[in-house]
Amino acid sequence: MPRPFTPKVITANALIEGDVVYLTEDDRWSRALKEAEVITDEAHAEVRLLDASSRHAEAVGVYLADVAVKDGTPEPTHFREEFRRTGPSNYFHGKQAEG
């Protein structure tokens, strides 16, 4: 029996800056996970992933990441995604400096 489909977002790295980005419902790449389109249908996820993967001039390493929706906001369910969202850990800069 196949596993049930869990909510996902499409994530990648911005081509020029390398920042983690998320695909929004209106087809923009955003650096904020809270703006990401949460996909709950497997077929829709595959179509969106194919489209996002074809945008080579904008982002690289495109994939689906599991999320849980808490208070209407997507939150990572895996440590890797939480780590990617908060930015590099080698010193205080970028996303970490903004907080």
Rank of each mutant, 00 (worst) to 15 (best):
D27N: 14
V69M: 08
P4C: 05
T11N: 05
E17D: 11
E25K: 14
K95D: 04
V60R: 10
R84V: 05
T11W: 05
T40W: 06
G94K: 01
D27P: 03
I10E: 00
E81F: 08
H56G: 09
T6N: 11
V62Q: 04
A68L: 07
H44S: 11
G87T: 04
K95N: 08
T73M: 13
G99F: 14
T11P: 00
L49N: 03
Y22F: 12
D41F: 09
H93C: 13
G72F: 05
V20Q: 04
E42I: 03
N90T: 15
V67R: 02
A36H: 03
H78G: 15
E42V: 06
A36P: 03
D27E: 10
Q96L: 15
S53R: 04
E58Q: 14
S89C: 09
L33Q: 00
E81C: 05
E46M: 07
P74Q: 02
F79T: 15
T77C: 10
H93N: 11
H78W: 12
K8F: 02
D71C: 05
L49T: 03
G99D: 14
L15G: 04
F79P: 07
R55S: 07
E42H: 09
I10W: 01
R3S: 13
V9M: 03
S30V: 06
R48N: 01
R28L: 13
V20K: 01
R84N: 15
R28T: 08
H44F: 14
A43W: 07
R55A: 05
F79R: 15
Y63G: 10
L49D: 00
V21I: 06
G72E: 02
K34D: 12
A43C: 14
F83G: 04
D51T: 12
Y91S: 08
D51A: 10
A65K: 00
P88Y: 06
T77F: 06
K8D: 02
P7S: 01
T77H: 04
A68M: 12
H44R: 15
I10R: 03
H44D: 11
D41P: 04
E35M: 15
L64A: 05
A12P: 01
T86G: 12
F5R: 04
T86P: 02
A14P: 03
K70M: 13
R85H: 14
R3N: 11
E58A: 02
E81Q: 14
T77V: 14
E46C: 03
H56V: 13
A65Q: 01
E37C: 08
A57D: 12
L15H: 03
S89G: 09
L15S: 04
V60K: 11
V38L: 10
F79S: 11
D71L: 11
H44G: 10
A59C: 07
F79Q: 13
A68I: 10
V20T: 08
E81P: 00
Y22L: 01
T73F: 15
P7M: 00
A59M: 02
P88F: 08
T40F: 07
A32S: 10
A59D: 02
R85C: 08
K70Q: 12
S54Y: 00
E37L: 10
A57K: 10
V69Y: 06
A14I: 00
V9F: 00
S54T: 09
R85L: 08
G61M: 05
L33M: 03
A14F: 04
